[in-house]
């Protein structure tokens, strides 16, 4: 823990990322405490109202209170990212470890599948799945589907890290000391890989959110729940932009951008810890 605090103190990127994320959560909490979230449902208010004292972010054409939509939508979007990112990182870590540590045929198979999977664009595969089950799609199912494609990048990074570490002297020493494979993995490799795992996780969350809002922009998201991506989709679908209703599409867009920048800074900060060479003194 002390170590983590030390890095946060001297790593500006990481600090800024966490501060941004914390600010967003704080804002959300204020919104959650003050806004009636039932107004996120259609027909809760008069449609097409610009921001006013009563509706701080106005209302959309279906009569939703946009502020309530944001309070509901932001965590829904982040939740998709967290579930998919966590599952992807866990599966990726297990596969990456297996491939990197044991090598041989196992490695070839895992690596080839991950390489092919990385080349086939995730969005294309997601489109095929989502187009079939679009009517029953919930954020949780969307997260699971995205997780199915989120493991390949972590697999690749973790594998190459394990490969370089496997050859280091301390692993050799551990082996000579009679530690078995599992002990070596958990006692010697894992601690050294932690910053990579953390960076992988944040990267996977970010990629999963990107994939989710990408699907939603195509109209393939959950139809019944107002996630951020679906809000942008509806705003576009009902011509919110040419009608000048910036309060419809701009708030979800800004929240998404802030979220990406925060995640990006955290992952860059973690990267700096993982690869000291990327540090720059001047």
């Amino acid at each position: 823990m002390d170590n983590v605090l030390y890095h946060i103190r001297r790593n500006g990127m990481l600090t800024a990322g966490f501060v941004a994320l914390f600010l967003m959560i704080a804002l959300w909490f204020i919104g959650y405490m003050t806004v009636d979230v039932k107004q996120a449902a259609p027909l809760s208010a008069r449609p097409d109202l610009p921001p006013s004292r009563e509706f701080l972010l106005g209302t959309d054409s279906a009569g939703r209170n946009m502020l309530a939509v944001m309070v509901i939508g932001a965590p829904a979007t982040l939740q998709i990212g967290l579930i998919a990112g966590a599952l992807g990182t866990i599966v990726g870590t297990i596969l990456g470890f297996t491939a990197g540590y044991f090598g041989g045929i196992v490695d070839s198979v895992i690596r080839s599948i991950a390489d092919v999977g990385l080349t086939v664009p995730a969005l294309a595969v997601l489109v095929v799945i989502a187009s079939v089950i679009t009517t029953t799609l919930s954020p949780e199912i969307l997260a699971l589907i995205i997780a199915g494609l989120a493991w390949m990048f972590p697999t690749r990074t973790i594998r190459s890290q394990v490969l370089t570490m496997r050859e280091r002297a301390y692993v050799e020493v551990a082996r000579l000391n009679g530690l078995n494979n599992l002990e070596i993995i958990f006692k010697e490799l894992m601690p050294n890989l932690l910053p990579y795992l953390a960076a992988s996780f944040v990267g996977a969350v970010s990629a999963a959110v990107l994939a989710a809002i990408g699907l939603e922009a195509l109209g393939l998201g959950p139809q019944s729940e107002p996630t951020l991506g679906m809000t942008i989709y509806w705003a576009r679908y009902y011509n919110g932009l040419p009608r000048g209703m910036w309060w419809w599409w701009a708030p979800p867009l800004l929240i998404i951008i802030m979220l990406f920048i925060a995640l990006f800074m955290i992952s860059a900060g973690l990267d700096e810890i993982a690869n000291p060479r990327a540090r720059r003194t001047t």
Binding site: L210, I232, L241, P242, W246, A250, L253, I257, F260
Partner: peptide
């Protein structure tokens, strides 16, 4: 750094709003 964190099409949305809708320099 900021731009690279924004998905292309969301940046596109902002550009449409600024340069096509507001300033009318480019087609919508």
């Amino acid at each position: 750094f900021t731009f690279s964190a924004i998905p292309y099409y969301l940046l596109g949305l902002i550009l449409i709003y600024l340069f096509a809708f507001k300033l009318k320099w480019f087609p919508l």
